[in-house]
Nucleic acid binder design. Sequence first.
DNA 1: TGCCTGTTCTTTCTGCATTAAAAACAGATT
DNA 2: AATCTGTTTTTAATGCAGAAAGAACAGGCA
Lengths: 306, 306
Amino acid sequence: MKGNAVFKSGYNRCLHRLAHLPPGTPLPSENELALALDISRTTIRAVLAALEERGIVGRAGGQRHLARAPTEPDHFPDAQTLSAGAAFERRFLEWILQGDFRAGQLLNAAELARQFGTSTTTIRECLARFQHFGLLERRPNSSWLFNGITVEFVREIYDVREMFELRATRSFIERPDTAPEWRELTAIEQEHRTILAHLDRDFALFPAADERLHRILHESTGNRFILDFYNVVATLFHYTYRWNREDARQRSATALMEHLDYIDALRTRDQRSIDARCRKHLRTACATLIGSIETRAATPPLMRQS
Amino acid sequence: MKGNAVFKSGYNRCLHRLAHLPPGTPLPSENELALALDISRTTIRAVLAALEERGIVGRAGGQRHLARAPTEPDHFPDAQTLSAGAAFERRFLEWILQGDFRAGQLLNAAELARQFGTSTTTIRECLARFQHFGLLERRPNSSWLFNGITVEFVREIYDVREMFELRATRSFIERPDTAPEWRELTAIEQEHRTILAHLDRDFALFPAADERLHRILHESTGNRFILDFYNVVATLFHYTYRWNREDARQRSATALMEHLDYIDALRTRDQRSIDARCRKHLRTACATLIGSIETRAATPPLMRQS
DNA sequence: TGCCTGTTCTTTCTGCATTAAAAACAGATT
DNA sequence: AATCTGTTTTTAATGCAGAAAGAACAGGCA
């Protein structure tokens, strides 16, 4: 039956809002809370009822107030705040991209359902989404084929990515100097410099900075297909980034420097130099990923500390 | 419960194979038939059993033979040879793209299930696919938003389409002269000339010819993301082509001529002129579609003879 | 041995049931 | 009038069950 992840996540987020208020503070109205937590009033009412049950919230007449400060054990575990589908999606991607599954292998929904403890209905719906990622292929009335992240796959992705990103830079530099995107770009540049300044400590922050820069460029196109594709790329990157941890620090440094050059070029609005920096950066990134794949293919699964 | 569309489609296709054989002819083995019809032996056996039941196939010992020639009423209706999902997909696209549904309207799965007579499970799975088309947007725990084919949507599609098609021409002209694609291109050119020669009679054949030309170009990239995008474009084009039937003949003529110029340019392998023809054709096509949208928006639904 | 058919087992497809969440409705209170 | 809370009605999320399709197994015959 339907899980209650929305309730649990709402409950946790509600506790978070109450955490720093002194006991006795009156609570906002149900409507206000529903709006703030972005869930329906029905669910807020369920949350508030549960909070009263636990003695965190009290009420005098119609008015609710905070009865005692919430503590850590009052929260639901994070894992339970994801819907069945979202939870499966995350665990599946981790399992298939970070485990030792190889291209060409077959997957069947019944076994995945057993393995992940959800119903085949949920599995089917999620696997269908991954078809769009190019990761899986559906064979009617039969299993799913795992296409895998092969060298060929990465070439195809980067081929499209280069077209889209070059196109995105053209939209970006058309923005007037006063547009908020330029301020955001400055903030991104600052973030880059901060990471570089303490590289040994902070290189793990690189993926977030990378995402921030490329996303703002893609968003400037306002094109849903380009953005949709970038979301796929970002997801895959998220799960494959840790494939090769050996020289992560060095790779991050290189990419950060390339980004800074790229940002400089964007500021000049000179299309030739922008194109050059963009291409250079994407080629490095592509080569890095291909390198990871090859390293990975050469490493027996048991030697990986995943 | 699960439908038996595979069985029915197999049954029909099996009849088709038997149609022109004289009674008494021995049938191929189960394995051979399964391979030929691309279904499992289990299903073939069910088909053969049904054929025996109806007296179309007889058997003496282990050997089956054709007992009587199959007739038209022996077949299942075509509508029943599609799986629930495939049938819904087709009817839904027709309904939403050719009916008078407007951008911004909400769709709910429960009502669609009632309207189309299938289960919500099937509906949900299919609607998820259309998200990928950019047509629908899912709002968790709530209805689906129909984004519609707006002018903005078409601009975004053609923006990407131009990038991909220009890219595709570069792959295409790298093929050696001896590659089969060039022969196919000649055949396509011939098809175009044939249609143009009897335009008044044959202009309705244009969409198929259009599909054939653009598809062979996109296929030459060997890039799954480009091909996947083209499949979306082709589907949308299929269902929107008839929006404005008034000057269909004239529009087809223009497009056919542009295609012929485009094909000539491809043969020269001169990238500049290819790019020019490609862009010109896509701009015409984009403008035509936008025109249809505007005509359509201005026409009250009742006046349309859909 | 290799291919055929009969049989059994497994997996997908798809309708349905149940619960969570949203949305609509209604009276009450400021 | 506007906003609040209590109640009822709809709809989406998701597990499950039954039938169809696929896959594997097994004995028999050339």
